[in-house]
């Protein structure tokens, strides 16, 4: 049984099906990718899995648990974390504290410990956070504020924050958007490394090079429906995919480069 299974997952806004009967399996220890043109419903899918958007129909099971009715923070505690396309970092906390906030598991009484014996509760999580920082080469920036850092580094903080809690599955929403080719390749290597430490990953991205190169298995989404799935090699050859998506690869590549550039400039301005 796969780590995460969505069955007939449907998200509707009014009459529009942003996700329509989506069946996706994420196998443990694998890197699964989801591609699709703009507006295909990729981010909606992550939102639905992590509890930010209510399902209209269908079920999601994670690690044998039905996720229905669980809030985003409960899902995070089960080991299901995510990154955001628009980063959404905690700008008022240093990089290390960003990670610590995500790593710590708060109990009802942890505020008492924190007030009376500050520091006692966090020792257990320090190492976890250090590992996540090291994994993304952020250790030297640990005490800086995210707002002082470059866009590429901020992206990495987002990923590190999702990793810091030692989740079972991380959903990455366009982690490479706004990164240059080299940075994006480097990120790809890192992602493969995480797999070896017993984590599973789910990746959405526009960067076809990244997705086709690093993923073990790929789903293709168009107009909210899964139109194809398979290994990268299979997907590359699939005629439906070529028609819907890869056929216009040149134009798409240009478009995605353009979007990435826009996002980058907006973030910086």
């Amino acid at each position: 049984m796969a780590l995460l299974e969505s069955r007939g997952l449907t998200v509707s806004y009014g009459g529009l099906h942003a996700n329509d009967q989506v069946d996706i399996d994420i196998t443990e220890g694998k890197l699964v990718g989801l591609i699709g043109p703009n507006g295909a419903g990729k981010t909606t899918f992550i939102d639905a899995i992590t509890g930010f958007t209510p399902l209209s129909a269908g079920t999601v099971t994670f690690d044998g648990v039905d996720l229905e009715g669980k809030s985003p923070d409960e899902r995070a505690h089960l080991g299901l974390t995510r990154t955001f396309q628009s980063l959404e970092l905690f700008e008022d906390l240093t990089v290390r504290d960003n990670l610590m906030a995500a790593a710590e598991k708060a109990r009802w009484n942890s505020f008492i410990t924190d007030i009376l014996m500050p520091g006692r509760g966090e020792r257990a999580y320090q190492q976890q956070v250090d590992e996540a920082l090291d994994a993304l080469d952020l250790a030297e920036h640990a005490d800086r504020l995210p707002s002082d850092m470059s866009h590429g580094q901020r992206k990495l903080i987002g990923v590190a924050r999702a990793l810091a809690a030692r989740p079972k599955l991380v959903l990455l929403d366009e982690p490479a958007a706004g990164l240059d080719t080299q940075e994006s390749q480097k990120l790809g290597f890192k992602l493969r490394e995480f797999l070896s430490s017993g984590m599973s990953l789910f990746l959405i991205d526009h960067d076809m090079g990244l997705v086709l190169n690093v993923c073990d298995y790929i789903y293709v989404l168009d107009f909210g429906r899964i139109i194809a799935h398979g290994t990268p090699a299979e997907v590359r050859k699939d005629p439906t995919v070529i028609a819907a998506y890869l056929g216009e690869s040149a134009g798409e590549a240009q478009a995605s480069a353009g979007t990435a550039l826009n996002t980058a400039t907006e973030e910086q301005s």
């Binding site: 992590t50 930010f52 809030s71 985003p72 923070d73 995070a76 505690h77 974390t81 995510r82 955001f84 959404e88 970092l89 905690f90 700008e91 008022d92 906390l93 504290d97 960003n98 906030a101 995500a102 598991k105 708060a106 924050r161 809690a165």
Partner: peptide, 16 residues
């Protein structure tokens, strides 16, 4: 501070 900064991200990070 995480809640102050961004409630969405806070709940995604496992904060109630």
């Amino acid at each position: 501070l995480a809640v102050r900064a961004n409630e969405r991200a806070a709940s995604a990070a496992g904060i109630n």
